[in-house]
Computed example of a mutant assay.
Amino acid sequence: MKPFVYVMLTTACAAATLPCWAQTTTDTTIVTTTTPTPPANGGLTISGYAEAYYTHDFTAPKTSQERPGFLYNHKRNREININLAFLKAAYSAERVRANLAIQVGTYAQYNYAAEQPLLRNVFEANAGVKLSKSRDLWLDAGIFGSHIGFESAISKDCWTLTRSLVAENSPYYLSGAKLTYNTPNGKWTLLGSVVNGWQRIAKLPGYSGPALSTQVQYKPNANVVLNWSTFLGSDRPDSLKQTRFYNNVYAILNSNRKVSAILGFDIGADRKPVDSNNQRFGTGSYVWYSPVAIVRYSISDALKLAGRVEYYDDKNGVIIATGTPNGFKTWGYSLNVDYFILPSAVFRIEGKLYNSQDAIFESTSNLSRTNTSLTTSLAVSF
């Protein structure tokens, strides 16, 4: 722990002294986006993103090349690698739109491992049509980013360098069809979708599906976002009769240009399965949940700090199986420093500590209850 704390303090102080004369933009919005907005009169837009990273796991043995199994971003240990890089083509006209993005990187390698080989490099592929001439009502179908959660795989668009536990263990992408309606005043977004499953392009073998997912988002003003997203379906074969109901709730608050906060709470439940005789293993459901809080402080347009506290409780091992008496009950703490070299380029450094109730982390001597790491990245978008 002492070397870790020393490195954290040193890097934070060094980052705080970086010059802030680089080209910057004023950050007055709550949520940023990497993909350029298509031209108002329609047309084809080409964009791209690349994030190189290095992660040093202080707890894991020197020969261990991977971070813990419940992480999918910045996965490789003690080596320089690419987390995510993609090239995207977006077409937009008055009443049609389409997106295609091809990806590479360790994020795709680990998070898409269960998909068909030819689809593992598809970050996004969808087509949409506007159903009304006067209303902002769209029908889109294909593979698209998940509306569940406030974080995505595009690190540059997130307040923290690495993803939260709840983001790593809920859908980053969905495949299916969705209806999206935005009210004329821009305050409400309503979404309903039929999808192939819980982060599935191809359906899980033995699952007939489909699953349903919704989103209700309210923006009363430019400084507040309130969101409730759901998933109803299963991530188990039909024979087990395990219905899953998942709720994702969060608020993004930006009271002034200096301090912003994200407060989130996710809770899911899988109904207990049946055995070969169609008898359930008890009544009720297996429940897991995760609260998270992130606070970001903008020193300047170029320099920002963010701290995160999170907890993930999955005692029955529905999402994260540990095989230990208490299951996965883990606190997470992180602090990151972001320096925007240019509006399209950011250097980031983050220290993270996990503290679990059981010894679940690989270490130099048996297993450990804690895990510490330091991650740096350089992300560029165009």
Rank of each mutant, 00 (worst) to 15 (best):
M1T: 12
Y6L: 10
W21T: 11
Q23P: 05
T24R: 06
T34M: 12
T34K: 09
E51M: 12
A52F: 15
A52R: 12
A52M: 15
Y54L: 14
H56E: 01
P61D: 06
P61E: 06
S64Q: 14
P68M: 13
I80T: 14
N81Q: 10
N83Y: 05
K88R: 15
V104Q: 02
A113I: 09
L118I: 12
E124N: 11
A127R: 02
L139K: 08
A141G: 15
I154R: 05
C158D: 14
T160I: 09
P171F: 01
K178R: 15
Y181A: 03
K203R: 15
G209M: 10
N227T: 14
L232M: 13
D238R: 10
F245R: 07
I252Q: 03
I252L: 12
I252G: 01
L253G: 02
N254K: 15
L263V: 09
I267R: 08
A269R: 01
P273E: 02
V274L: 05
N278G: 11
N278H: 13
F281H: 15
S300C: 11
S300D: 05
A306W: 00
D313Q: 13
D313F: 10
T324S: 10
G327P: 01
Y339E: 00
S344F: 03
R348C: 08
R348H: 04
A359Y: 00
T375S: 09
T376F: 00
A379I: 00
V380K: 00
